[in-house]
């Protein structure tokens, strides 16, 4: 019964009724030869997070200015924009990782299932909104323990292997890694290949059963083949969790995202359906960025 106590109890609000998919179909984007990986519009989407008038500054320097966005389960939201435009800062504020920087100040509100995130205890929030980083960073322990670490109580080593096994296996399966590592669960995770390490990090993030999954340029350190595997995975995951991905790679955003938010110098310039934003951007700056004029 240890396992039942292990993850802190998460009280979920009754979900709102699914909204109709908001994808606006537009002619395929000019200059985008890549095929969309998420075929067709998502089946349904449920609003999980609400970013409302958020501004973030580091010691007086504005990084994000007055951004409002919905984050929905059932779709992938991509944040794009040139370096230093505040997209990673915005992503990190969603699970309050920005608070690790002493000088960071946040205005506006971010709500998770209609509860302001500042009212949720950070460790609990970060189990509901988990994150995968740019560099694959498995912990220096076995593949199994990497996932089990998330399931165990703070700092505890209790909860036996046998009790945790089903949850660990299912997380690895959801991350599409189980078949590759099922015989090597005791091997050190840092000996996996880069792509496998990153999928292990995704499995770790999924093991907490989050409502929102944040991905901070998860493929930028990987080869094209691993990137493809992870992109497929992300598209598959969107039905169970709301996915927010920061990416530098416009092709990637186009391939996997349902909605795209283009940020420039801290401002949210344009938010819209992926095909619409890439195919017929409303704003001049978006058009220039998407066509490769700056960045």
């Amino acid at each position: 019964m240890e396992l039942l106590r292990t993850p802190p109890p998460i009280r979920r609000l009754p979900l709102p009724d699914p909204e109709p998919a908001t994808e606006v179909m537009a002619p395929a984007g000019a200059g985008f030869s890549a095929a969309r990986r998420s075929i067709g519009a998502p089946q349904f989407s449920i609003r999980r997070m609400e970013v409302d008038g958020v501004s973030i500054s580091y010691g007086g320097k504005r990084a994000v200015r007055d951004v409002s966005l919905p984050i929905r389960q059932g779709e992938v939201l991509a944040l794009i924009g040139p370096s230093g435009c505040g997209k990673t800062t915005l992503l990190r504020s969603l699970n309050r990782l920005t608070e690790l920087t002493a000088t960071a100040r946040l205005e506006g509100s971010i709500r998770l299932d209609d509860v302001d995130v500042t009212l949720i205890e950070p460790t609990l929030l970060r189990r509901r909104v988990t994150m995968v980083f740019q560099q694959p960073n498995p912990f220096p322990m076995s593949v199994f323990d990497n996932v089990a670490y998330v399931l165990r109580e703070q700092g505890s080593r209790r909860a036996r292997r046998r009790t945790l096994e089903p949850a660990v296996h299912s997380a690895l399966q959801r991350a599409g890694l189980f078949d590759e590592v099922k015989d090597n669960l005791r091997h050190p995770a840092l000996k996996l290949s880069g792509g496998q390490q990153q999928r292990l990090c995704i499995a770790r993030a999924l093991a907490a059963e989050p409502e929102v999954l944040l991905l901070d340029e998860p493929c930028s350190a990987l080869d094209p083949q691993s990137t493809q595997v992870i992109e497929d995975l992300i598209v598959k995951l969107r039905d169970d969790v709301a996915v927010v991905i920061v990416t530098h790679n416009l092709q990637q955003a186009y391939r996997i995202a349902d909605h795209v938010a283009f940020m420039y110098l801290g401002d949210l310039v344009e938010y819209g359906g992926a095909t619409a934003l890439f195919g017929s951007p409303r704003e001049q700056r978006t058009r220039e960025y998407v066509s490769g004029a700056f960045g």
Binding site: F139, P140, V150, Q154
Partner: peptide
């Protein structure tokens, strides 16, 4: 730094991160 943050990002405290990672 991102290794520490990866641990915080799955809801672990600083103490747990220090001890286990």
């Amino acid at each position: 730094r991102h290794v520490r943050e990866a641990s915080y990002a799955v809801g672990k405290t600083k103490a747990a991160t220090t001890r286990r990672i």
